[in-house]
């Protein structure tokens, strides 16, 4: 099982209010990416040596990262949304539930 070693909230200049960076204890594999992708709409840039992925979920959050790295991000899609922190929590829990099965 892959576990989370750290989480960090990130503020960016454009004012997207909720970005959570999650560090895992091992690299993100293609298997994890496609498993995560089952719950949403997966964009997978496999033309890159280290492919970028971004998955958009109907619950108003995104998960993005790069294959082979140890960190990924859960991001609120609509910055205007109230209770953004709860949406991010949902995204984080979904990530944990997928990681449990790997």
């Amino acid at each position: 099982m892959i576990s989370v070693v750290n989480t960090k909230d990130i503020l960016n200049c454009v004012g997207d209010p909720f970005i959570k960076e999650i560090t895992l204890d091992s690299p993100i594999t293609k298997e994890i990416i496609f498993k995560l992708g089952e719950g949403g709409e997966l964009e997978y840039l496999d033309r890159l040596k280290k492919p970028f992925f971004k998955i958009s979920y109907s619950e108003n959050y995104l998960i993005k990262g790069v294959e082979g790295n140890n960190s990924l991000r859960v991001i609120l899609k609509d910055p205007e949304l109230k209770n953004g922190d709860l949406v991010i929590k949902k995204g984080f829990n979904y990530l944990l539930s997928v990681l449990e099965y790997i």
């Binding site: 960016n12 200049c13 454009v14 840039l45 890159l48 040596k49 280290k50 492919p51 970028f52 993005k64 990262g65 790069v66 790295n69 960190s71 991000r73």
Partner: peptide, 15 residues
């Protein structure tokens, strides 16, 4: 994000 995470290149976005 891609520049940093896939290519180790640091640039900046935003305002």
């Amino acid at each position: 994000y891609i520049l940093k995470e896939s290519f180790d290149i640091i640039v900046r976005s935003g305002y």
